[in-house]
Design a protein around this nucleic acid. Structure first.
Length: 387
RNA sequence: UCCCCUGUAGCUCAACGGUAGAGCGGCUUCCUGUUAAGAAGAAGGUUGUAGGUUCGAAUCCUACCGGGGGAG
């Protein structure tokens, strides 16, 4: 079995940050790694080549999206997601568990008729397609079988991602289900002999300390290849608790396994997470916000979340590049004025150029973070950025 | 010089007797395992000016001013 090999190259002496490599059959993931989200089998608007140029090693594809469109049979027929997308690097797939939250009535967007697109019970999640209403059932077995068909290097155990605010009882219910589903997820993958895929278990428990500790201990005992922390900052979780969850859980997780932080984060979040020992994290921030006109720029500082809105009229005649001194393709070739113009006219190039820059910004930041850890200077770098 | 058309929010227009709406733009906010090239909100007009008719005028009448077109 060509299982995942996680090698910690160096542990920062002044924090829990660590840098290393995760070797997969499709190449190396340098950690700490930022993982962009490409739910629909595309990091929107970019080619694989451009993703690599942004210093990104791996990205996320979503099971829910793939099952409805194009459907698992089609992906199998073309030889899996890597071939389908012509992405030769490492790849991760999400289990579909996130949609238990995002498509529910407590999710980020209400459905038009107020009816939930998901129904959850102990067996799994019944989904309705957001595109045509077609129903689909996804349980741990179905999710893992689908992810086996997709063939990503790192796959996620099926879990229930919770909303917030939430009662402890409801959070415990989701956690218990996730624990049961973890066993089934492992069993489903184990049936496939000589699997090259690596399965990550997901710690749940919302913002309740005892639940998180329990969940971490539970997941730590199972033969997962890596662990992930879920349901942390997707909803309205109090910010101070988001990172407390890492303090509660990480001590119980085996230090020789990589730990992924699901759905986080902003620039500040990346520093806070890496400091506590997170090896990888995924977020829509650079890509989605990029398409909304937000350009990441260190000079904007923590107060502005290191970004500014290039669609504002003040940039309409600004001949400077989006970020001065940035070496990405966008900044080397285009002005704020031009990109402002593209956004105002909803030109497709706007989304490409903004995404290209933002991803390069995140990729470069992770590179700097890795270097700083290797030199025991992570906290210094953090101070430079966050003050 | 005469005739016709026209003047409503920054722009393009709607409302055609009952005291003004939309789209776009501008502004603000939101976005953390993407239903997201997305969502929400507030602001913005003494309806060219001055009179008149009317219970009531952006709407009808008169004059003037501005814009467009036509005839000489």
């Amino acid at each position: 079995m060509a299982k995942l090999r996680f090698k910690i190259i160096h542990r920062d002496k002044k924090s829990k940050a660590r840098t290393g490599t995760i070797k997969t059959d499709h190449g190396i993931i340098r950690t700490p790694a930022f993982v962009p989200v490409g739910s629909g089998a595309t990091v929107k608007s970019l080619t694989p080549e451009e993703i690599k140029q942004a210093k990104i090693d791996v990205f996320f594809v979503n099971t829910y999206h793939m099952l409805f469109r194009p459907g698992i049979e089609k992906i199998k027929k073309v030889g899996g997601l890597h071939k389908f997308m012509n992405w030769q690097g490492p790849l991760m797939t999400d289990s579909g568990g996130f949609q238990a939250f995002s498509l529910s009535e407590k999710g980020p967007r209400d459905t038009l008729d107020g009816k939930s697109l998901v129904k959850i019970n102990s067996e799994g999640i019944k989904f309705k397609s957001v595109w045509d209403g077609k129903e689909m059932f996804l349980g741990p077995k179905e999710s893992i079988e689908a992810q086996i068909g997709f063939g990503a290097d790192i796959i996620m155990s099926f879990d229930e991602c919770t909303f917030y605010p939430i009662t402890k009882e409801r959070a415990k219910l989701a956690m218990d289900r996730t624990h049961q589903w973890a066993i089934i997820s492992l069993e489903t993958l184990a049936k496939r002999k000589n699997s090259e895929q690596n399965l990550f278990g997901i710690v749940q428990g919302s913002i309740f300390r005892d639940l998180r500790v329990k969940s971490a201990k539970y997941m730590a005992c199972l033969p997962f290849d890596g662990l992930a922390i879920g349901s942390v900052a997707n909803s309205q979780e109090p910010r101070e608790l988001v990172f407390a969850v890492l303090d509660w859980t990480l001590p119980y997780l085996p230090s020789e396994k990589p730990v992924h932080f699901l759905g986080v984060g902003e620039i500040e979040d990346i520093f806070l997470s890496v400091e506590k020992g997170i090896d990888s994290l995924d977020c829509v921030t650079p890509t989605r916000l990029g398409r909304m006109g937000w350009i990441f720029d260190k000079i904007m500082g923590i107060k502005h979340k290191f970004r500014y809105d290039i669609t504002k009229s003040v940039y309409a005649a600004d001949k400077n590049p989006p970020v001065i001194d940035c070496s990405c393709y966008t900044c080397q070739n285009f002005s704020r004025a031009y990109i402002n113009h593209l956004f105002r006219n909803r030109e497709l190039l706007a989304y490409r150029l903004a995404t290209t820059h933002n991803l390069f910004f995140f990729g470069s930041l992770m590179e700097k973070i890795s270097e700083s850890i290797a030199e025991d200077k992570f906290l210094r770098l953090k101070k430079i950025w966050l003050g």
